[in-house]
Simulated assay, not measured.
Amino acid sequence: MRINTRYGLMDFPEADHDLIAQFLVRYGEWAWDEVCFIAEVLPMDGARVLDVGAFVGTFGLGLAQRRQLQFLGFVEANPTAAAMLKENVKRNCAIAHSVVEAIVGTPGENYEMGASESDNLGSTGFKHTLNISDKIASSKADILTLTELREKLGPFNLIKLDVEGMELEILKADAEYLSKGDCTIWTECNETAGSLELVRELLSWDLPLYYFAFPAHNIENFFGDREPIFPFAYEAGLLLAPKTPPSLSPILIEHHCILRPIRSELDLKDALWKTPRWGLKEWNGLEREEIVALAGHALLGQNFPEYLRPDSTASAASNWLTLDQRLKSERGRRVFETMRAERAEAALAEKSARLLQLTSEHGHDTSETSNKRAKLTDGEQKMER
């Protein structure tokens, strides 16, 4: 497909086969709030930027519209997307640039076969379990590390990574350089356990780290369509080593973007937990209080047609009190079970230490030691039950 967009005339996959293509057709853009935020993070005009996982080029081309860049490097592994990327960059990028068809990874790995979700070509990854519904992407592209790209294209002020779960291994392979903080990193952050592994590594570098999340739908999009495809869907990323602390512009605040410093794994877990990922279409455009009210009715299993019927005896207050008590009861039960298990483990550890001490003192099993071991084993079995 080819249409005019915020970035100029762009080639991209059929909308039925890709999420980003749906947004380009409907709104003429993808993730514009992300571009606006990162543009403000760049230290100055004349920055050098590397866009890894560029797909059809929306991030890099958008950034070049917001800031006067010195150089823009695009890297894409999917051969179908790479062909479109080359045309889009040639048509719309007026600054010094380079497009590299390559898989960014670590030496010695086999990345030849990748896959994408059946309706999202932009999700192509080269290191995950393939599902029956996945599209297979075969790539004969070169395998390069960030170190090799830096040597090939020169140093960068900013590296953006959107590589479908390969972020950690790519960054670790170049940790000796990146941990110095000379280059700012902007990397995708999804709701997976892998994001906690990633943040654990980044925090070990002792550099400033921030979480930024933004609505997938920009209400001030290029085509002016205010109806979201996916209400309350947010995208998120981690920003490492910005040269100055980031902040939200008035427009990003108005768009309900989220910015939080990350100082621990728990900080990230909490940020992801409190980031919207989905909502009902009927909630769109409502005030916060109205959304809370509708979510509360849904939680109580209530529906509007039966609301306030004469045969409904329970009041709203009693319904909420019952629900609150049930939730507190369930939380209390879980806390009690956790505390009991921890006490049992502590007691077992103490007994084990005592048994080892007895064995060490006697040099061999005495009848006393054997009896204690039997009791200890019985205790283990009871705790397991």
Rank of each mutant, 00 (worst) to 15 (best):
M1L: 10
M10R: 12
D11M: 04
P13T: 05
L24W: 06
E29R: 00
W30D: 02
D33M: 08
V35N: 02
I38T: 04
A39W: 01
E40D: 15
E40N: 12
D45Y: 04
V49D: 00
T58D: 12
F59A: 00
G60W: 00
A64M: 01
F71D: 05
N78V: 04
N88Q: 07
A102E: 01
G108N: 05
E109I: 13
E109Q: 12
L121M: 08
L130M: 09
N131V: 08
I136P: 02
K140H: 10
D182M: 06
I185C: 01
E188C: 14
N190K: 14
S195Q: 07
E197Q: 12
L203C: 06
W205D: 02
Y210Q: 03
N221I: 09
G224D: 10
E227A: 13
F230Q: 09
P245C: 06
S247D: 12
E254A: 12
T275Y: 03
E289H: 10
L300K: 05
N303C: 10
D311Q: 11
A316V: 14
A317H: 06
W320G: 03
W320Y: 13
Q325C: 12
Q325F: 15
A344F: 00
A349P: 00
E350D: 14
K351R: 15
L358Y: 04
H364N: 09
S367G: 13
S370K: 07
K382C: 05
